[in-house]
Simulated assay, not measured.
Amino acid sequence: MWPYEWDAATSQREAIANARLIAAAPDLLEAAKNFIRWAEEPADGSVGMAREQGWLEQARAAIARARGEQDGGAS
C-alpha cells in the first residue's frame, strides 16, 4: 500500500522533476568538485565559513555518492 493516494498529474510532475534533476546531475557534480577545489585552496582565505557550516563535508559526501563510493546511508 502506498503512503499516499496515486495521482496521475502529480506522478507526471514528479517524473518531469526527476528527469530535470537527472539531466542536471553532471553539472551539479562539476559544481561540487569546483567548490571543493576552491575550499581547499582559496585565494582570499575565505574558506572558514564553508568549513564551519559543514558545506565542505556535505559536498565531499555528495561527490562520493555520485561516484558510487558510498551508499548514501549512515556510515
Rank of each mutant, 00 (worst) to 15 (best):
F35L: 07
S75N: 13
A66L: 06
Q58Y: 15
N34S: 14
A32P: 15
A66D: 04
E40L: 14
R67M: 07
A64D: 11
A9Y: 03
D27T: 10
I22F: 14
A39E: 00
L21P: 01
I16W: 10
G45Y: 01
A64R: 05
E69R: 00
R20W: 07
E30G: 06
I22Y: 03
L56E: 07
F35V: 05
A9E: 14
E40I: 15
A59K: 13
F35H: 09
A66V: 04
F35P: 03
G48L: 09
Q12R: 10
I36D: 02
G73H: 09
G54K: 04
A39N: 03
P3F: 08
Q58C: 10
E30N: 10
E5R: 13
R67F: 03
A43W: 14
L21E: 04
S11M: 11
R13T: 00
G72S: 02
A31H: 06
W6V: 12
A66E: 06
G73R: 14
R20P: 00
S75R: 13
W6L: 11
N18P: 00
Q12L: 06
A74T: 09
Q70G: 11
D44K: 12
W55K: 15
D44Q: 10
A61T: 06
D71H: 06
R65I: 09
G45D: 00
I63E: 11
E14Q: 08
L28I: 11
W55E: 15
A31Y: 09
S11V: 04
A61N: 06
I36S: 02
R67D: 15
A24Y: 13
A32C: 10
A15M: 12
A24H: 02
E5L: 12
E14V: 03
A23D: 05
I16Q: 14
A64T: 05
A19K: 09
A25L: 08
A19R: 14
E41I: 04
A23M: 05
Q70V: 15
R67I: 13
A39M: 00
E57N: 03
R20Y: 02
W2L: 08
E57D: 09
D44V: 12
A74F: 06
E57H: 13
E30F: 07
A32Q: 15
G72L: 14
A43G: 15
E52N: 08
L56W: 02
M1A: 05
E14C: 02
L56I: 07
A64N: 03
W6Y: 09
T10C: 02
A9V: 10
N34V: 11
Q70P: 07
G54R: 06
R65E: 10
A74K: 11
L28T: 14
R20A: 11
M49T: 09
A8E: 15
D7Q: 02
A32D: 10
G68S: 02
G45L: 00
E40S: 10
R51V: 02
W2Q: 14
A59H: 01
N18S: 05
Q12G: 01
G73N: 09
T10G: 05
E14G: 03
A8G: 08
A17I: 00
D27W: 14
D27L: 15
L29C: 09
I22T: 12
G73M: 12
